[in-house]
Design a protein around this nucleic acid. Structure first.
Lengths: 243, 243
DNA sequence: TTCTATTGTTACATATTGTTACAATAGTAC
DNA sequence: GTACTATTGTAACAATATGTAACAATAGAA
């Protein structure tokens, strides 16, 4: 029998501490989330990871989200740390390790209780090439209303992420992170509607956005359809990576 | 020489994880914060603590804040987790242990790097009997503009706490937690002004508060001063402990 | 009774937001 | 070219909300 692999060295990481990321994208119609599927287990989870002893929490999260999406300079926002005792359930992780041919004993620290720091990320849907992590063989976009059953408290984490995202929508200029550099007013409104789950009055939305003095107007976009062509806009400010 | 004491058993706690609390009170004029002074070190810090292996993060924080204030049912809100590598500096903790006559070797886990989850608490200033923690001999109220130099990144933690408190001021009914059950409109306005650091128009403030439909009007309060007596109010809702 | 400081409420001006209406226009059909 | 359609940008008006000042009420002191 082949010797079991060892990939997550206990000594390299801060024990009992993890991070999870809710990675939001917008496909033009709906808000989507990246969900991992662990190899041969039927277990679905948010992309996450651990913090090395010599790296900051933020560095770890940036690295993890970059690896899953193939993007650099991702907009990230920390929104909550989850520390319930109920988060402690070694069985799923045991199965994940087994299915990946990993040695349980040397990875037993992964079966312990974990406190997790949760972040959400906003990314440009079109630019992403999702990549599974070393323990999973699937990663895919899911709409909020079609999520698979998720491990542990990950469903709750998503709900809190969405709640925070909605609260921050006007405060910070979040729309920009989900859209290409140039976009029409209608596309911007669709992002807002997808995030809030409500609809806005077209005229009022336009006035509010132009009034905020954060948009630059560019050339028109001729779509080939038989109606007036909309202007393209971009945000004046460049996006911040960590808010 | 007497054997050195042992009080924080490594096995009982989750390593590398702490919490810190920014405990706000209102003395009628200013917003105040509780700050600890560690025994014979001249080191000032926010009240904090560690999480036991078998208790939730929230339980640990509630217990810690209750011990420092003597109160139960405290309004608490988690606002950020700090995970910089720069937080790692063993010297202050070493001095604190020495000055408390504690054995360094068996407490060496306290000298390691810590990620801290920060909460703010809002409490009724009049009801609090501050008590130092086992490692400190002083705990006192400080105004935000007269804070002593604080350990590590505690100043930064306070700033983030205040920022979040201001953002939440209207969203959640925070005023109630800083005032006695019954209060006048002027007292409520003073709390708002102390938190935001701005002043409000009296008439507009009254209209907004009454319009929010969250206040109950009670009898007048006769202060013995020669002017119209103000009504007393209370909040309709009872406060929530964790937001 | 008169006076003062403060309070509760109203009145009015101004600003913001919600809604509707209308003109402009890129393409299609003819 | 003209007529037509779908969509867009903006203006117009109405409905609310907010900022500010004014005014009447009143608890006590003089």
């Amino acid at each position: 029998m082949a010797p079991k692999k060892q990939i997550l060295n206990k000594e390299d990481y801060i024990p009992n501490l993890a991070f999870d990321s809710v990675i939001f994208g917008f496909n033009g119609k709906k808000l989507k989330i990246l969900v991992l599927e662990y190899r041969n287990t039927g277990l679905y989870a948010l992309p996450g990871g651990f913090v090395r002893r010599n790296e900051s929490l933020e560095e770890a999260v940036k690295k993890g989200v970059s690896e899953r999406t193939g993007l650099k300079n991702i907009y990230l926002e920390q929104f909550r740390t989850f520390g319930d005792v109920k988060r402690f359930d070694p069985e799923p992780m045991k199965r994940i390790l087994e299915m990946n041919g990993l040695d349980i004993t040397s990875h037993s620290w992964l079966l312990d209780r974990f406190i997790t720091v949760a972040y959400y990320a906003l990314i440009n849907f079109e630019k992403v090439m999702p990549k599974p992590d070393p323990l999973s063989d699937g990663i895919d976009w899911y709409s909020l209303d079609e999520l698979p059953p998720l491990m542990m408290d990950h469903q709750q984490i998503i709900e809190k992420a969405l709640e925070t995202l909605r609260e921050n929508l006007d405060k910070k200029l979040l729309g920009m992170n989900l859209l290409p550099k140039k976009f029409t007013m209608k596309e911007l409104q669709q992002v807002y509607e997808a995030i809030t789950g409500t609809s806005f009055n077209r005229s009022g939305f336009q006035r509010k956005m132009l009034g905020a003095n954060t948009l630059l107007r560019h050339e028109k976009r001729f779509s080939g359809n038989s109606h007036k062509a909309p202007y393209l806009y971009s945000f004046k400010t460049t996006h911040t990576t960590i808010g």
